[in-house]
Each structure stands twice: as structure tokens, then as C-alpha cells.
Design a binder for these strands. Structure first.
Lengths: 141, 141
DNA sequence: CAGCAATCTTAGCCATGGCTAACTTTGTTT
DNA sequence: AAACAAAGTTAGCCATGGCTAAGATTGCTG
């Protein structure tokens, strides 16, 4: 019975971006194709094929050449936690009336670097701030 | 009169980390040596030499082999804004009683991805929250 | 001032994650 | 079923930013 993953599943920012998009595509279209991932991440199909194969080797998804991919249990769990993190950060920044595109850009950059305790804190803070619109109004420029 | 910088000064996360440490070393010791930057960033001296030479080519600092470096005006301005950003994020996260090491780690990761409007928002939010210790207390776990 | 230790540089390597160009496979369309 | 377009893959390239090993320079110290 051969081991499935060659090394500890790398969890780079790039891998997290892929997982996030793949889960989103599966949720909206039912499947994730190379071409759609490429369009979504604005990178070439070749780069996607390459990364997908590495993610397969890392046990984050199962891939069949020319066919398609499915997230493994661990890949899906990871993708969901990444998506949750993205949502929490977006919800937080949305409190302050920042431009949506800016929010998206900042969240895309930051999200890979937020630890669970910090994330939980921001989630709790957002909940508190929602009860204090006057305070939030003072923060909005 | 030859142009000084070969390309648009790259402003990667790595470059920002170097600038931040160099300014800090200059502020505390009066100068920044290769060996200290290496220790501070926990990377090899060879990597530092390499990057410093690229930052010289990019016009962020002036470097003389075996001698030393000085930040250029643009390098120093950049370093200061990076330091300010770091401080604002740290001040924000410190409100909530998170572990100092965790704060440091998260800030180091996030800081390179925060746009000026978002940063200003967080700065204003921190100021408001300081006036609302009760609310902040509800956020702390 | 010779020698030594610390510092710095160079050379050459590696992984990551992009790219283009060319080719293969698939599936649809006639 | 042939042909075509869309999708996917492979090969080979590149920049970034790390690394180690080995050599060069500096400056201190006996």
C-alpha cells in the first residue's frame, strides 16, 4: 500500500488560492475545469495544469488527465476553512464603506497570513461593531 | 548621464522586509550590516548580499562592496511608510490581548497586502476602539 | 606587521510558480 | 466518421528569493 502524498502537503498562498477557486467553481457549476480556474485566477491554462498535478500529488485533490478533478476530504476541509476566512475578512472590511474592489484585493493578499486566533478576534469584533453603527460611522471617512 | 535604476523599483514583500529591517537597524545601531540583516531576517548572509545588490540597482539604497549601505531618499521614504504600516497593524491587534508573537507573525505576513485606504481605516478604528474599552473587552476571549 | 576571525562576496544550486509555443485529446457538428 | 474547435498537456523557459561552499576582504590583536 503506497503512501499517497510524497511530502507534507504544501500550503502556500498559491495553493490556497487554487483551493478557494476550485471550491467556488464546484459550488456554482458543479465541477472545476482547468480553463475556468485559469480564467478565474487570470493565469494560463498551462500553469493550472501544472499546479493541479502537484496538488494531486499532495493529496489535496484527485485528478485524471483530460478528465477532471475532485477535492479529497482534506482538500475540501482546507478549502472550506479558506473560504470562511475570506468571508470573515470581507465582512469586516465591508463595515467601513471601502470600495469593493479594494476590499477584494486586500483580502486576497492578507488572507493567507491570518492565524486562527486573529481571525476569530476579527470575527468577534465584526459582530460587536455591527451593534455600534455610530462608532463605525465615525471610522468611515 | 546614465539612468540609475534598470527597471521600475520592484516592491515585493521580500524587498519590504529588507527595507523595514534596514531602517530599524539604522535607527538603533546607526548603520545596517549584512550580517545583522541576515540575523534579523533569519536568512543567510549570501542571500542578503544578493538582495542588497539588487536593491542598489533599483535605487532603494546605495551600497559599496565590503563597506556598507545608505538608504536613498526614496528608499527611506518607503521604509518609513512600511514601518508606519507595521506599527498601525500591531497597535490594532494589540487591542485584543493576542499573544505578542502571534501578532508579530500575522503582521509580518499581512502588512505587505494592505492598501492605504484600508490602513487608514484600521488606524481610525483603533482610535475609536481605544475610547470603548467595554466593547473591546467583549471581543477579547 | 603577520595572522586570524569576522564579515562579505561569488559561484552555483534549488523550489516555486508563472509564461509561451506546440502538441494531444475530447467532444461537437455536419 | 471526418473535421474542427475547445480544452488540456507537455516541454522548455524565466524571475524571485532562498541555500551551501568556497574564496576574498577587512580590521583587530598579539
Amino acid at each position: 500500500m503506497p503512501a499517497k502524498q510524497k511530502a507534507a502537503p504544501r500550503r502556500s498562498a498559491a495553493v490556497e488560492d487554487y483551493l478557494e477557486r476550485i471550491l467556488e467553481l464546484i459550488n456554482t457549476k458543479g465541477y472545476a475545469r482547468v480553463v475556468d480556474i485559469a480564467l478565474s485566477l487570470k493565469i494560463s491554462q498551462a500553469s493550472v495544469t501544472n499546479m493541479i498535478q502537484r496538488m494531486d500529488a499532495d493529496g489535496l485533490l484527485k485528478y485524471e488527465r483530460y478528465r477532471g478533478m475532485v477535492l479529497t476530504a482534506s482538500g475540501e476541509a482546507l478549502a472550506k476553512s479558506i473560504t470562511r476566512r475570506h468571508q470573515i475578512l470581507t465582512d469586516f472590511l465591508r463595515l467601513f464603506g471601502l470600495d469593493e474592489e479594494l476590499i477584494y484585493h486586500d483580502v486576497e493578499g492578507m488572507e493567507h497570513h491570518i492565524s486562527p486566533p486573529t481571525l476569530n478576534t476579527i470575527e468577534a469584533l465584526t459582530a460587536q461593531l455591527r451593534k455600534q453603527p455610530a462608532l463605525v460611522a465615525r471610522v468611515r471617512q
